[in-house]
Design a protein around this nucleic acid. Structure first.
Lengths: 127, 127
DNA sequence: GAGATAGTACGACAAAATTCGTACTAGCGC
DNA sequence: GCGCTAGTACGAATTTTGTCGTACTATCTC
């Protein structure tokens, strides 16, 4: 597969025992129309974009983004992203950390991840 | 892959006087989230996919697709695609012909056109 | 154990999108 | 002109999606 996938697998195995991911579709089950649908929302596009572009350590909690929205709204959006197969979430103690499923998306829809990473919000649409 | 764009541009300049396109956003105004939103629908994804993959002559009327839906529904979807900047439509006498704005999409979102061209509907989801 | 913290689940309301019928316009050919 | 055809416009019913309050669970820390 891609270099990225390799990187992440490495990173994966460095961390001693990662919690099992929350329920998510298998890579082969990810549907383009579903992914498109879930990325049609600027907030969700922002989430994925930031996960891709400003992730030194590579997964983050909901809170990390600093969105000024109720927690229940955020849960909703993260869940939508996960169920569409765009992000993977793992429970670490109290918090739930997310990362983009780069390898899977690259395999299924090459080029998509780059599109999202290059995206920027419309003028005056800070979230 | 991007041979398509080339093919289409050539074809463009061959036709002597094309009717003015119906109102559409400028290439620079096309928004990724909007494009994603409009392509979240399987019918619309089918439209664009077929325009890309089975277009010997390169633009087609609504009727050409043979969808079993009321005309008013089809108008709705084609308009949505045009207003998001995905297709260009021109009025030729009685009929309105559509093509994908390949060059513009390629410029703004490289790789996207290929994703759509490679898409195939989920099992048992013939339209 | 008590309190703070990260996030969920449910449910309600509001906003947006989808579907489609009906009535209409405009071009084409006889 | 007359009918046929391709497609639009409007509007209503239905469905889906987004937003968010409230109440709740689970975990960590002291």
């Amino acid at each position: 597969m891609t270099d990225l996938a390799q990187t992440y697998r490495t990173s994966d195995s460095e961390e001693p025992s990662l919690p099992t991911p929350l329920p998510e579709p298998a890579a082969s089950e990810i549907r383009l129309e579903r992914v498109m649908g879930v990325l049609a929302d600027p907030l969700r596009l922002t989430i994925v974009n930031r996960l891709l572009t400003s992730s030194e350590e590579y997964d983050h909690t909901c809170g990390w983004f600093g969105f000024d929205r109720p927690k229940s709204s955020l849960t909703h959006h993260f869940k939508a992203l996960r169920e569409a197969g765009v992000i993977r979430q793992r429970q670490h103690g109290l918090e739930r950390r997310s990362r983009v499923r780069i390898e899977d998306l690259d395999e299924r829809f090459p080029g998509l991840v780059e599109l999202i990473a290059d995206w920027q919000p419309a003028d005056g649409e800070a979230v």
